[in-house]
Simulated assay, not measured.
Amino acid sequence: MNSSLFLVVLITGMFLVCAGLGLALLLSPRSFNAQKGEAYECGVPTKGTSWMQFRVGYYLYSILYLMFDVEAVFLFPWATVVRELGVPGLISVIFFLFILGLGLAYAWRKGVLKWE
């Protein structure tokens, strides 16, 4: 019984995805302009090739930003129900912040936060 239900859900999902993509292809406006295919940033045409290497520091900064951005996303719901959670909720969020603090300390010790 479960396998037939799974099959129905899978087929329905595949149909809905294909129907949505097909409908978008049929109804979307088409413009064949060569300028649409060019690379640009902020409306300014690029100079040189866009296939250049960036320093790893940019990627490390972005990963750290995402880490602390996700932390904020997890802390907002916790802050709304902190009184209902009681002491176990407080201990769990302190543990969560401790783990994030360890990650920040590790990055700091490795020199990731130095911009050279």
Score class of each variant (00 low, 15 high):
residue 29 P to L: 11
residue 42 C to L: 12
residue 31 S to W: 09
residue 53 Q to R: 10
residue 50 S to V: 03
residue 50 S to Q: 06
residue 19 A to C: 00
residue 35 Q to A: 14
residue 20 G to L: 01
residue 42 C to E: 09
residue 45 P to W: 09
residue 39 A to R: 03
residue 34 A to C: 01
residue 33 N to F: 03
residue 30 R to F: 11
residue 28 S to Y: 14
residue 50 S to P: 00
residue 46 T to M: 08
residue 33 N to L: 10
residue 36 K to F: 13
residue 29 P to R: 15
residue 46 T to G: 03
residue 19 A to H: 00
residue 44 V to S: 05
residue 42 C to A: 13
residue 49 T to F: 01
residue 44 V to M: 02
residue 35 Q to E: 14
residue 34 A to I: 06
residue 38 E to K: 15
residue 20 G to C: 01
residue 43 G to R: 05
residue 35 Q to L: 11
residue 44 V to R: 09
residue 43 G to V: 04
residue 43 G to L: 04
residue 40 Y to W: 07
residue 47 K to R: 02
residue 48 G to H: 01
residue 46 T to F: 03
residue 20 G to A: 08
residue 21 L to K: 00
residue 38 E to I: 06
residue 45 P to K: 04
residue 19 A to N: 00
residue 28 S to V: 14
residue 50 S to T: 04
residue 49 T to Y: 01
residue 54 F to E: 04
residue 53 Q to H: 05
residue 45 P to R: 06
residue 56 V to F: 06
residue 21 L to M: 04
residue 33 N to P: 00
residue 29 P to Y: 13
residue 22 G to S: 11
residue 51 W to H: 09
residue 28 S to K: 13
residue 38 E to H: 09
residue 38 E to G: 02
residue 24 A to W: 03
residue 31 S to I: 15
residue 52 M to G: 04
residue 26 L to D: 02
residue 30 R to T: 14
residue 28 S to E: 06
